[in-house]
Nucleic acid binder design. Structure first.
Length: 465
RNA sequence: GGCGCGAUAGCAAAGCGGUUAUGCACUGGAUUGCAAAUCCACGUAGGCCGGUUCGACUCCGGCUCGCGCCUCCA
């Protein structure tokens, strides 16, 4: 089954053929760690985690790198305000990032290079750009001269002169630039700012250089897949291409073969962004919802489409997962990789079609329907299939009972599991005594606390609403 | 101004030139001491106007509306 991916470069779906099928390479732009990440940051992480899982099933080895940007003017400012080093600040938020992404059941990338550990590679690449006549030094800065790159604009599908014309009011016409579109590779640091020694004096890297330098250093000259949010297409990824190709000999090698970009997350129909301030951090959402609900919600829309983030979306994701976990009641937790089923191939074919996750979720529900109609060994087998299907997209990996008993961190302090079990025992006795009034009273009391009882021949089960 | 994306039933969201998406919500039935869960049944949706076609939600053109990017942003 071949994998098809939409390539921003060609603006169409292409059959994915890696340079080296024995080792697929993928790079995804990670966070700038100066704060807790927001839900918009989580979308690409979940999307590319889903792709990572798919690739791992198709190829023996997948090298997936996701960087941590730990030097940046926002980090510098935040650290200075706290009176700490950028390392201390970024360390703290990198840890929080790992915790948050772990809650979304994302696998750790194969490697996670940090900008500050790779300054040498950046300096080396900048020097190569200068040597090849694509960059120049000016007033302590090193700039990439965009007009020297004939291919510039091929990712964002813009022409350089149009960009300059359209953006004339916005582009920073700093004195040290030869041409307005030139962008910074290296900039000087004053004594109170983090800096590294370089051939151009003590300074720090521009934003774009870290990714192309770390890709060359840790992955390869040419990698298979590079991913990120749509807002990175221009200028960030366009500039990465310029750096990543121009630092080598002319026309030598492609930088990235497949560029993938996820759509935005909207809040009330408006783009969520740090600058607009209309964002939720993953951390605050995790106070109210299980991480799996957030992951499911992110997978309900196709990754290239915008996704409107609302409370209804989360409530609906929760309800959908309730149905899926309902089919996994009493199912063993361990994965049985050997299990086979036509619906697994169907599901895989949807994933292979440019990560068509909405269709994947439909297959999960079809499986749940089959399970609910089956019994005995057939049911057990189908439950194993559903577990495996869920694993394909990083869902349904917890115990169903635990799922139904989950409660928000912010709301703990109500009835404990023990309190509930005691009331259920009392109700069982009342039922035995045909005291249905008392039994119903207990049901009603628990319902007021958000506890739903389900009687069955095997006993009474409860779930938190 | 340049470039791009979208418009599907109450809500969310897919595929597909002719035949069920799916989930949530709603309604009826089965089941249940009462419930819940589950099962069964139930929706001529496809912005507007043309065109192609035996047939269009699906292809083509135009229009309207909404959104994004054009050097802070996932």
């Amino acid at each position: 089954m071949s994998i098809q991916l939409y390539n921003t470069l060609s603006q169409k779906k292409e059959v994915f053929t890696p340079i080296n099928p024995d080792e697929v390479t993928m790079y995804v732009c990670g966070p700038t760690v100066y704060n807790f990440v927001h839900i918009g940051n989580a979308r690409p992480v979940v999307i590319f985690d889903t792709l990572f899982r798919l690739l791992q099933r198709h190829y023996p080895s997948v090298k997936y790198a996701r960087n941590i940007t730990d030097v940046d003017d926002k980090i510098n400012a935040a650290a200075k305000a706290n009176g700490e080093t950028i390392r201390e600040l970024s360390e703290r938020y990198a840890l929080a990032y790992h915790e948050d992404m772990g809650q979304l059941n994302t696998l750790p990338p194969t490697l996670e290079p940090r900008a500050t550990d790779n300054i040498d590679a950046m300096i080396e690449q900048i020097q190569a750009l200068i040597d090849h006549g694509h960059a120049y030094e000016s007033e302590g800065h090193v700039l990439f001269q965009v007009s020297t790159d004939k291919e510039y604009g091929k990712l964002s599908h813009r022409k350089l002169d149009e960009m300059i014309a359209g953006a004339s009011e916005r582009v920073d016409e700093a004195s040290y630039k030869k041409e307005p579109a030139d962008f910074v590779l290296w900039k000087p640091s004053t004594d109170d700012l983090p800096g590294w020694d370089s051939p151009w004096g003590r300074g720090r890297p521009g934003w774009h250089i870290e990714c192309s330098a770390m890709i060359n250093k840790h992955l390869a000259k040419t990698i298979d897949i590079h991913g990120g949010g749509q807002d990175l297409i221009f200028p960030h990824h366009e500039n990465e291409i310029a750096q990543g190709t121009c630092c080598h000999n002319e026309g030598e090698e492609q930088f990235v073969r497949y560029w993938m970009h996820n759509g935005y997350l909207n809040i009330d129909g408006e783009k969520m962004s740090k600058s607009l301030g209309n964002f939720f951090t993953v951390r605050e959402l995790l106070e109210l919802w299980p991480g799996e609900v957030i992951r499911y919600a992110l997978l309900t829309a196709h990754y290239r489409k915008p996704l409107d983030w609302t409370k209804d979306l989360l409530a609906s994701a929760k309800a959908s997962l309730d149905r899926l976990y309902g089919a996994l009641r009493d199912a063993p937790l361990d994965l049985d990789d050997s299990v086979e089923h036509p619906m697994l191939s169907e599901l895989e074919s949807h994933l292979c079609d440019d990560l068509s996750t909405p269709q994947v979720l439909a297959v999960l529900h079809a499986l749940a329907g089959e399970i609910n109609k089956a019994d005995g060994n057939a049911k057990v087998q189908l439950q194993k299939v559903l577990r495996k299907a869920g694993d394909f997209v990083g869902l349904l990996n917890q115990d169903a009972d635990a799922w139904f008993k989950w409660q928000p961190a912010g709301q703990q302090g109500g009835l404990s599991d023990g309190d509930i079990d005691a009331l259920i025992a009392e109700r069982a006795q009342a039922k035995k005594d045909k005291n249905f009034a008392r039994a119903d009273q207990i049901r009603a009391e628990l319902k007021d606390q958000g506890i739903i009882l389900e009687d069955s021949p095997e006993g009474t089960r409860w779930t938190r609403d």
